[in-house]
């Protein structure tokens, strides 16, 4: 599951990148909607968000690109978005717009427990899945609360801290079995998953691996070097695939 920040690099358009990564064999594509204060993100993704906002990207811009991509692909698309953006006007309206654009689900990493019911209801009404995050320190009671409000898949954080590449594959086996006991939903693992080896290691117990910062950095470098960013994205996603 590749993650990219919408609007970075500026070329090619997000819709072109989506179609390219779908062709390369991605199972689900995660699209980060840029936010001015991304506290869960490390320097790579945070910088991508600042560049994207600077270049004028908005949620409406993301929706338009997703709609465009939908003409050529039916790959699963989930939006990663801060509740600051979702809640700004009205949760129902934001979710409706995302569904209308062609998103299949949303990942909301920072919603308040009190608002989870509203968020779940809005997603259900508009036919979107809602993915919430489970952290290494989430207690059993907290995991149950998260599972109860989730649909689609659960996002298990491979480690504490912010997004960003790490050297070693995370050890998630213990937390995976704990979580499996609570839910039948598929479980995706992210934060610090950077290489094909990590993907393979995580795949031994999880249903999916989310690769973000490593891809965002690769695309930015390709853009800076004047390379074809679409090709870089395609090749990177291809390179992550593990033999069945």
């Amino acid at each position: 599951m590749p993650y990219i920040t919408a609007g970075d690099p500026p070329k090619p358009d997000l819709s072109t990148l989506i179609v390219g990564m779908a062709d390369a064999g991605a199972d689900i594509i995660e699209i980060g909607i840029p936010f001015s204060d991304p506290i869960a993100d490390g320097p790579v993704i945070a910088s991508a968000m600042f560049r994207s906002l600077e270049a004028g990207m908005t949620p409406a811009g993301v929706f338009a690109e997703v709609k465009k991509a939908r003409a050529s692909t039916d790959i699963a698309l989930v939006g990663m978005v801060s509740d600051s953006i979702v809640a700004h006007a009205d949760r129902g309206r934001f979710v409706a717009q995302a569904a209308e654009a062609g998103f299949d689900g949303l990942i909301v990493p920072d919603a308040d427990t009190r608002d989870l019911g509203d968020l779940q209801e809005a997603c259900k009404t508009h036919g979107l899945t809602l993915t919430l995050l489970v952290a290494p320190m989430s207690t059993g009671a907290r995991q149950r609360e998260i599972v109860e409000h989730s649909s689609g898949f659960i996002y298990l954080l491979a480690r504490a801290g912010v997004t960003g590449e790490r050297q070693d594959a995370p050890d998630i086996a213990g937390r995976m079995s704990e979580l499996r006991a609570l839910t039948d939903l598929p479980i995706g693992v992210g934060f610090g998953i950077a290489t094909a080896e990590h993907v393979t290691a995580v795949g031994a117990s999880a249903d999916g691996a989310i690769v973000g910062s490593a891809l965002v950095r690769r695309l930015h470098e390709a853009h800076e070097a004047g390379e074809d960013v679409g090709t870089a994205a395609h090749d990177f996603v291809k390179g992550l695939q593990t033999s069945p």
Partner: peptide, 18 residues
């Protein structure tokens, strides 16, 4: 944690337990 409707805890999951 709330002052009327204001306040709350809108944070990444990693901080909830802390």
């Amino acid at each position: 944690g709330r002052f009327g409707r204001f306040g709350g805890r809108y944070v990444p999951e990693t901080l909830v337990n802390a």
